[in-house]
Computed example of a mutant assay.
Amino acid sequence: MPIKRIFQHLLFSDWQVHRAFKRESLDAITKAIHNSEHLHGGEIRLAIEGGLDGIRLLKGQSSRDRAIEVFSQLRVWDTEHNNGVLVYVLLADRAVEIVADRGIHIKAGDECWRSICQTMQDHFSRSEFETGALKGIAAIANVIGLHFSAHEKHENELPDAPVMLNFKN
């Protein structure tokens, strides 16, 4: 485990998370997720984490492994048509991971998700966090919409608001 990564994560503060994703940005993201879910039959969740805790760092947990863990914890897999999509942001690594449930993943494939992650990471590298998140949500909504059209009566199966992980304030 590189010592630089350990310090990067342990020193990443809630203030830095709040600076990247201000309340107004979180509100805009919530609205974008909510509105997008009227255009398709899937569910989108966004989880934001500043840095990993000491145990996860010592075990060498990757951002991908953490995203899969969060996917399970937030029960994104628990949608009627297995078409939930988690966007996991690990700010200390400037990493974006997308974990899609089997119903949508089998139709979209790895390359689709990698491309969306790369677009988001490009914006994040320029500190354009809200723009990157909104572009990612729009792209995911388009992918889901290609394979799962909106139902007349769409039941919101997962919360639309981003979840802040290990956030103390």
Rank of each mutant, 00 (worst) to 15 (best):
L86Q: 02
R66Y: 11
N83D: 14
S62F: 05
A67W: 02
V96H: 00
G60F: 07
I68D: 08
D78Y: 01
E69N: 14
S72F: 04
R64E: 14
R94Y: 04
L90C: 10
K107I: 09
H105I: 01
A92M: 05
V85M: 01
R75W: 05
R102T: 15
R66D: 09
V96G: 02
V87Q: 01
R64G: 06
I106E: 15
L90Y: 06
G103C: 06
K59N: 15
D65C: 13
D65A: 13
H105G: 08
N83A: 07
Y88E: 01
S63N: 14
V96R: 00
K107T: 12
W77G: 11
Q73A: 12
I104W: 02
F71A: 02
K107V: 14
V70S: 06
V87W: 01
L86V: 11
I98T: 04
H105P: 03
L74Q: 14
E97K: 10
W77N: 08
F71Q: 03
G84D: 08
T79Q: 06
A67H: 02
V87I: 15
R75D: 10
Q73V: 08
G60K: 09
G60S: 07
Q73T: 06
I68G: 02
R64L: 12
V89S: 03
L90H: 10
A92Q: 06
V76C: 09
V87M: 12
S72H: 10
D101S: 13
E97F: 09
G84A: 12
E97Q: 14
V85E: 00
D101R: 07
I68R: 10
R75Y: 08
H105T: 04
I104R: 02
V89M: 09
D65M: 13
K59R: 15
I104N: 03
K59T: 15
G84Y: 09
I98K: 01
E69G: 03
W77Y: 15
V89C: 07
A108C: 13
A95C: 01
Y88R: 01
E69C: 10
I104K: 03
R94N: 14
G103K: 01
I98V: 15
V99N: 00
S62Y: 06
V99M: 00
K107S: 12
V96E: 05
G103T: 05
G103H: 06
D101G: 10
L86Y: 03
G103S: 11
V89E: 00
A92S: 15
V89T: 08
V85R: 00
A67G: 05
I68Q: 10
N83V: 10
G84I: 11
A67I: 04
K59H: 13
F71P: 00
S63H: 05
V96Y: 01
I98C: 08
A108T: 13
V76G: 05
H105M: 09
A67L: 06
S62I: 13
A92F: 07
T79S: 06
W77D: 09
D101K: 07
L90W: 06
R75I: 07
R94V: 00
K107D: 13
F71V: 05
G103Q: 10
A67R: 02
F71T: 01
I106Q: 13
K107A: 14
K59I: 04
R64F: 07
I106V: 14
R102V: 13
Q61N: 14
V96L: 12
G84P: 11
L58G: 11
L91G: 04
V70F: 04
L74Y: 12
R75V: 02
A108R: 07
S62Q: 12
L74S: 11
